[in-house]
């Protein structure tokens, strides 16, 4: 693996800090945070489920920013950000959609129910999965990039629906974190905040890594195209 080539001076310290945050949060979650009265040990899924949802928003938020910027400027950096954000958002969406049902089996007695938040999260996941599928069909041309950017922008309202669905529609999904202060026991707050820091740090690090890789790929594609134009290379296709 050659991640270190991406940015040798910052890469290792960033990973070290993230690894320490993850280890610290795991130890707080399992050795400091108290057991929840109703659900017992399965409530500890919450400490990484909710931060993963935040990381999902970060990833797809980056996609929205990148897609809008690409539509406005055709800047390849914006396209790289959109692709990187879509993958990171999809990763954490998958984590949310797997860990949530495992918690729900204990809390609700079923793995899945068509609750507004669950349904809108699944819908958002399908939109960005479509975006990634479109971008993975070989080397994306300009039309694929533009269509993909439009699709990514269309996903933005769904993200707001995911976030506000709990307040706007009746459902069974809990909203423990609210503006009124939340329903967490005081001993659960520190482990939860540290888990948020750990997961967001991991998400940003993955986003940065994927963005740099995409920029390198773009540079190679551009170099190959220039070499072909100058008849320095034979067209393999």
């Amino acid at each position: 693996m050659s991640f270190a080539r991406i940015s040798p001076s910052l890469f290792a310290p960033a990973w070290l800090v993230t690894a320490l945050l993850v280890l610290a949060s795991l130890s707080l979650v399992f050795f400091v945070a108290p057991m929840e009265v109703q659900m017992g040990i399965v409530q500890k899924i919450f400490y990484f489920h909710v931060p993963s949802a935040f990381a999902m928003y970060v990833g797809w938020g980056a996609t929205a920013v990148g897609a809008l910027a690409y539509l406005a400027s055709r800047n390849p950096k914006a396209d790289a950000l959109a692709v990187a954000g879509a993958e990171i958002g999809m990763l954490f969406c998958a984590i949310v959609l797997v860990t949530g049902p495992l918690w729900a089996r204990k809390a609700w007695g079923v793995y899945w129910t068509w609750d507004p938040r669950l349904t809108t999260t699944l819908a958002a996941g399908m939109i960005y999965l479509a975006y990634l599928s479109l971008r993975s069909f070989g080397e994306a041309g300009e039309s694929e990039k533009l269509f993909g950017a439009g699709l990514a922008v269309l996903g933005v309202p769904v993200l707001f629906l995911v976030h506000y669905s709990v307040q706007k529609w009746r459902g069974v999904h809990p909203t423990v974190i609210t503006k009124q202060g939340g329903g967490l026991a005081p001993e659960m707050v520190t482990p939860f905040l540290l888990s948020i820091a750990a997961v967001l740090s991991l998400a940003l690090l993955l986003l940065w890594t994927r963005y740099r890789l995409e920029r390198q790929r773009q540079a190679i594609d551009a170099a190959r195209a220039r070499a072909l134009e100058a008849d320095l290379l034979e067209n393999e296709a």
């Binding site: 109703q38 659900m39 409530q43 918690w103 609700w108 007695g109 069974v172 809990p174």
Partner: peptide, 30 residues
């Protein structure tokens, strides 16, 4: 009111779902 407490809202009353395997599954998936 619902959000203030982690209360089960549905599911069979007599069934006891073990939390340990679900927790391990979730962290393995993560």
């Amino acid at each position: 009111e619902r959000s203030a407490a982690f209360r089960a809202v549905s599911g069979p009353e007599t069934e006891s779902v073990p939390g340990g395997p679900l927790l391990i599954g979730a962290y393995l998936a993560l």
